[in-house]
Write a protein that binds this DNA or RNA. Structure first.
Lengths: 215, 215, 215, 215
DNA sequence: AATGAATGAGAATTCATTCAT
DNA sequence: AATGAATGAATTCTCATTCAT
């Protein structure tokens, strides 16, 4: 029994029913513990959520930064960012959904902290887009609209991606890079630019199967 | 005092705090009623949510269908669908968010009903895309991926659009049609194809100002 | 059903079992209410205690001040104070015990407020003793020790007085004035000095019989 | 690590927060032990309290009896009893407060046992007073009232005495004997009668400093 | 001697809902 | 149309205690 299992059960429940609708007893049942025992692993229901979200957002930032550093041109960096984002989201769809939707469940202080992490992450995209536009690589009529579109469609991967689905992760990543290029009027071939994306990182909080998230 | 006000308060609360985290007393307070009095307007908390969601989804379908009927080519129909979707979402962002996120709060029976409405709505997009692909108007490497991307990015409008923002609604609609065309490899000029979109419909459940959704 | 009944039940329980050991369900049962219904009358368990204590202490101060004002000499004022204190304590023994013992159950802020009221009350005694000593009416070797002794023994009335006991309230009051005089070396006859003490004030929080404080 | 330290921590907590409001984990923390380890020293929370109270009450009885035996006249015995009581109370104020207030926390059986000890102790005072009255040494209008007053004011020492205070223990003892004489109309000089009181006994359960009773 | 993990019972409080007025 | 009073069920979290290690 370890914290990881508790987090996985929590993410399973939070993603499917929402934080507020998930009871602490339910979480205990999902890992086979009395609800009181959960408090040996977790300070409170809210702290449990915060740890999950923080780790998720911090990892996204790390991965995004690494992807930016791995390329030298804005075009390449954007490809890396999108591939990283899609890869991470597809690998940790439930954790990402929780991190996306449950900001509102947090008390103001921690909410601000988490919001800052998310803002920091989005800034990676904003910066790359700005640099690419300055260099004349991107030709979108409205850059900030394009950024929003790219981020929304990529984040949406969490809503439908299944690891056993019709397309491999690499294919999905490639398709989203191509779509991002299309949105930005980049005529380069994504294949030729995108470096082999690093293997996806799986969070400790991401449920490993579909068994633990029922209820 | 009427049902509309109750629904607007509810949508304000549900969108900002989530259905499960919103108390019935809180809703009463938001419209200046004792919680018991709410039950004169509403059968139960869940029914309140269901009515809101149903009206929202049904209207989306209506509008989507009308947009399809107003054009004769898949290219034009897609433009109409996207413009309609963006227009509706931007006009009713909170209602749309509720309809999008709170399916999970419903009991199985109604949830299935609502899910069916949503599926029906998405089918409008799927159909247009299929027809357009058959006619050779759309050239996306993966059509279903393109559909998901278009829907996610358009629905995302609910997350950031502000009526008093930098861009007019018509501009945003136009930009999203253009981006959809870009994703589908359509080289037509959206301006020349897009019929003047009908004026946006505002739901009775959509809060009218920013005052009622605090707390 | 009113707040008074709730307070009486609470004082009965708090006096006999202590605040911390008294459950909210128990309180509900004592007044014949579901525990949830208690929250219509009371903000929280702690607020219930605070209201009881505040009213008790404020009344003690009022009564003590009135007793001081009713006499012109320190000797007479002391008699009035002691008679008032004993009368009030004997009339509201359970409320007084709660006000005496449960300061520790309060959160720092309210505790400080209640402590201030108690200090204020004790100051009445301190002032009278000082004035009497200055005038040469009191001849105790140590005045502050005498004050402590007088207050402790008078407050102790709450621990043993029974309205149906062997002595009438007036007799007990008289005896305590006499004992206070003895402690202070006053040789006046209490009978001749003590004005007829005003009828004792009964708090709304004081249980009216021995029926409601079991459990 | 020994039982004494555990008892001292317990008395510190019980005196300041009350038995019911003190958690077993808190006690463990106060002595630097895991709460489970406490159960090597103590059978249960209640047993811990009982041992403390029993030892306290038994010692009071012993000391009181010895004081009575050390004098031959009721006047002298009373002086001894009061001096002993005040000395013991001032030396073990926290233990005495616990023994005084927490009877109510005990289950009926042990409560009866402890109550019997307390009754036994009070009987020492009652007996001396009765004998003194029979011999014409004491002239109080109401003897049982006088006994209550003497005991309450002496026990009250636990509420305010500080070893580093303005008066020495011997001075306080002497003052209380003198006040008792005053209450009983004894005109003897306490100085001439009171035998040198034995050195005060300190209980193993009495906290040794002000450090251990915080929290 | 010491502890981390575990638990059933119970703590205070809030919930959606009902109903007499 | 509106509400205060009422409640059973549920909430998060803490309790004293046990036990394998």
């Amino acid at each position: 029994m370890d914290l990881g299992r508790v987090q996985r059960a929590a993410v399973g429940c939070f993603a499917h029913k929402g934080f507020a609708a998930t009871g602490i007893r339910e979480l205990g049942a999902a890992v086979g513990l009395n609800s009181a025992t959960l408090y040996h692993y977790v300070g409170s229901k809210q702290e449990l959520l915060v740890e999950i979200m923080r780790r998720c957002l911090e990892t996204m930032i790390e991965q995004g930064r690494a992807a930016c550093a791995a390329a030298t041109t804005p075009t390449g960096q954007l490809a890396g960012l999108v591939a990283s984002h899609v890869g991470f989201t597809a690998t940790n769809p439930l954790s990402c959904r929780v991190a996306e939707h449950e900001l509102r469940a947090l008390e103001p202080t921690v909410r601000a902290e988490m919001q800052a992490l998310r803002d920091h992450y989005e800034q990676l995209f904003t910066d790359v887009l700005r640099r690419g536009a300055q260099q004349g690589d991107f030709h979108a009529p409205d850059l900030s609209l394009a950024r929003l579109a790219i981020m929304e469609m990529s984040t949406g991967v969490a809503h439908w991606y299944r690891p056993d689905g019709r397309k491999s992760l690499a294919e999905v990543q490639h398709a989203f890079v191509a779509m991002s290029y299309a949105l930005l009027g980049v005529d380069a071939d994504p294949h030729s630019i995108l470096p082999a994306p690093p293997p996806p990182v799986r969070l400790a909080s991401e449920p490993t199967d579909e068994l633990s998230d029922q209820g």
